[in-house]
Computed example of a mutant assay.
Amino acid sequence: MSSIWVFPGQGAQKVNMLHDLPKTEVVRKYLECASDRLGQNVLLLDQVEPLQSTYAVQLCLYIAGVISAALLNEHQLKPDYIAGLSIGAWAAATVANVLSFEDGVSLVARRAILMQEAYPHGYGMTALIGIDQTTVNEWVTRVCAQKGEVFIANINAANQIVISGSYCAMQQVEAMARQKGVVVKQLDVSVPSHCVLLKNQAYTLEQEVKKITTRPPEIRYLSGTTARLLMNKDQIMDDITFNMSKMIDWESTVQSAWERGVRLQIEAWPGTVLTGLAKKVFIDGTVMSFQGTRLDTLIVEMQKERYLTF
């Protein structure tokens, strides 16, 4: 029996997500470190108005994810595997010690600004629930043939596909989906993530990534884009740098973890979406999240898993 910690992407954010973290010394140190690195108080970022920006959302999710792991690390606990969806992959790589928290904060800020400035308005992401990838691909291809900017961005589950692009193009796909009785849900994401529209921004970020010191992972890292196990630090940095412009295959990532013997998944604060998606695969396993679960309960489950492993 093995464990995995997973880190959510945009859409999981909530007001006061940093304020609601435990009032402990380790939390205070991480928040102060992030504030010092950015030259601004990060506790001002998790409010209603700031969270309208990709900049605030990505930083809050990254910081909250790393702190979630630190709260368990305090009890000498670490997972067998680690993975993250979109910005969550940056937290995963940091927790695996591939890059430092300080460098992560700076690069995530840069990532968010690049994405935000490239598409300040008119673009986003939409979830289609109750439909398969093949059908969605047909709809997307049809709209793209008319010069619409829309792409499949995430495969969250066999019947949950996320599209990304311009609002105009996505609305055309949404209309086709509604005719088939598909549930359409616009996500709280203000940029067209996980498609070629962000390819140039990824290459720009790569130049910044090359300037930092990186290390081999101390925890096995599963890519949220390819569902592959990446053991090389350069592969992992490439994975998180370019994931903004590549489709996410979270369904295969969860399946890969299960097939590798993972039976306990813990989702970092503040998400629960990855918890819900994993329940469809972890039929005989345990799926938990920081949100709605006491910290001591998570600790007990990790300790139990470690005991069963040995």
Rank of each mutant, 00 (worst) to 15 (best):
S166C: 09
L229E: 01
N154A: 04
R263Y: 03
Q40I: 12
K304T: 07
L99E: 07
A83Y: 07
S252L: 01
K78H: 06
I240E: 00
Y167F: 09
N232M: 11
L295H: 07
K180H: 12
S252I: 00
E102G: 09
N243L: 05
V26H: 14
Q76P: 00
R142Y: 13
D103F: 13
T293W: 11
G261M: 00
G65I: 12
I212T: 02
Q58Y: 09
I236L: 06
A64Q: 09
A153T: 02
G276E: 02
F151V: 01
S68M: 13
L77Q: 06
V254G: 11
D103G: 12
K78G: 03
I248S: 05
N159L: 11
L85G: 03
E32K: 12
D188F: 07
Q291T: 12
I155G: 08
G39L: 02
G65T: 13
V66I: 08
A64G: 10
L21P: 12
V15G: 11
F242S: 08
R220T: 14
D284V: 06
G148L: 08
D296H: 09
W90Q: 05
Q47H: 15
E25C: 11
V42K: 13
D46N: 11
V57L: 06
Q201W: 01
W269F: 04
C195W: 01
V196R: 06
I129C: 05
N156Q: 12
A89N: 04
C60T: 10
S106E: 12
Q160R: 08
G181F: 01
V98L: 09
A70Y: 03
A89H: 09
Q116P: 02
H19N: 15
Q160M: 07
Q235E: 02
S2R: 13
Q235T: 06
I299D: 00
A145D: 14
A34M: 14
T204K: 01
P50D: 14
L277P: 06
W250D: 09
K185Y: 14
A64R: 11
L77T: 00
I152E: 05
Q160N: 07
T309R: 13
N232A: 10
I82G: 02
W258A: 10
W269K: 00
S3K: 11
A278C: 02
V42E: 11
K23H: 15
R220A: 15
Q186S: 09
L77S: 06
S252Y: 01
A169R: 05
N41Q: 15
P8C: 14
M231E: 14
G11T: 12
P22K: 14
D20H: 14
I248Q: 05
C195F: 01
M17R: 12
V189K: 04
H75Q: 04
F282E: 03
E174F: 04
N137Y: 13
K210N: 03
A145M: 14
G88R: 04
C144R: 15
M302Y: 10
S2Q: 14
R110H: 06
Q172H: 02
A64I: 10
L187R: 05
A112S: 03
T141G: 15
G261I: 02
L107M: 09
A93Y: 00
Y123L: 08
C195P: 00
V6G: 10
A158L: 15
I67V: 03
Y30W: 15
T126W: 10
G11H: 10
L264Q: 04
V108I: 09
T286W: 05
V57N: 08
R178C: 15
N232Y: 10
Y119A: 04
L43H: 12
V15H: 13
S193Y: 03
E49G: 07
Q179P: 04
Q291H: 13
